Simulated scan of single mutants.
Amino acid sequence: MILIYLLLWGSMPHPSFTASVNVGIVNGTEARPHSRPYMVSIQKNGRHICGGFLISDQFVMTAAHCKTGGRLEVLAGVHDLTRKDKTIRISVKSYYEQADLMILELNRRVKLNVNITTIPIPSRPRSRVYTKCSVAGWGELTIYGPTGLTLQEANVTIMNARVCKAQSGNMYSASEMMCVRGYGGSCKGDSGGPLVCGNTAVGVTFFGSPYYCNDPDFFNVYTKISAFLPWIKRITRSN
C-alpha cells in the first residue's frame, strides 16, 4: 500500500488512509507582504496548523483533515506569523465538510480591505493540464525543518491525470483531484491552502510524498474545487 503525507501540521489518523499526517513551502520564495490578501492561517490554541483562503467575507475554504478536534480560529491579514499587528482573529461558527474540502463559516463577517480580501473560485469545471499556477503557505521549509514564519510561495504546473493516477493508485480520483509539479511545493503546515491559477483558486492542498516535501518523484495532490460547486453554492448562499 502506498503511504502518503497529508500536508497538515501535526499527526492525526484519517479514515481513508493508513498513514501518519506529517507532511511551508519548500524551494519557494517569500511572498511580497499582503500580495495574497485572501490567505488566512487556520489556528488551534493560537498555533498555526493549516492554510486557508477567504471565498467571501464570512466563509473560508480549507482542507477537511485540518479539523483535528477542538475549536479552530482564523487569522486574516497576516504575513509574518510572529507579528499580530493589523491582523484579525475570528472564531469559527460552523464547519461544513465534503470529501477533503471544508468550509468554515465565521462568527462574524470580515471587514475587507487592502490586506484582507477574497479570491474567486471557478464558476465551472476548469483545470487544464500544463497550466502554470502557484501555491503559498506558512508550513515547513523542509520536512521536519524550520517553519515559514512569513508567507512563502512557489510556482507549479498541473500534470496529466493519468500520471497522477499511476503514482497514487486508488487514492487518486481524477474527477475530484488534480496533481502538480514544480521546483517548489507544499510541505507540513500547508494543508488547506489554495492552488491558484491566474486569479482563481482551483484546488485545495491535500497530500504529498511520504518521504520528502516536494518529492521530485511524487506529485502534490489537490482537491479540485470545481467538482464540488453545487455543494459550495448551497452552503454559502443559504447562510
Rank of each mutant, 00 (worst) to 15 (best):
M1A: 14
I4N: 06
S11C: 06
M12Q: 14
M12E: 12
P13Q: 10
P13F: 05
T18Q: 08
V23P: 03
V23N: 14
I25A: 05
V26Q: 03
V26A: 11
P33F: 12
Y38V: 02
S41V: 04
I42A: 00
K44Y: 00
G51A: 04
G51H: 01
G52K: 06
L54M: 04
M61S: 06
A63R: 05
A64C: 08
H65G: 08
C66L: 05
K67T: 10
R71T: 00
A76C: 07
G77W: 03
K86V: 00
S91A: 07
S91Y: 04
Y95L: 07
L101M: 06
I103D: 00
I103P: 03
E105W: 02
L106K: 03
K111N: 12
L112W: 02
I116E: 07
I116S: 05
I119H: 13
R124C: 09
P125V: 11
Y130H: 15
Y130N: 15
K132N: 15
V135Q: 11
L149M: 12
I158Y: 00
A161W: 06
R162G: 10
S168R: 14
G169Q: 10
S175C: 07
R181E: 11
G184S: 09
G184M: 05
C187W: 00
G189M: 01
G192K: 02
G198V: 04
G198T: 01
T200V: 15
F206H: 11
F206I: 00
G208D: 12
V221I: 05
V221N: 03
T223G: 06
K224Q: 08
S226Q: 07
L229Q: 09
L229M: 11
I232V: 13
R234G: 09
T236D: 08
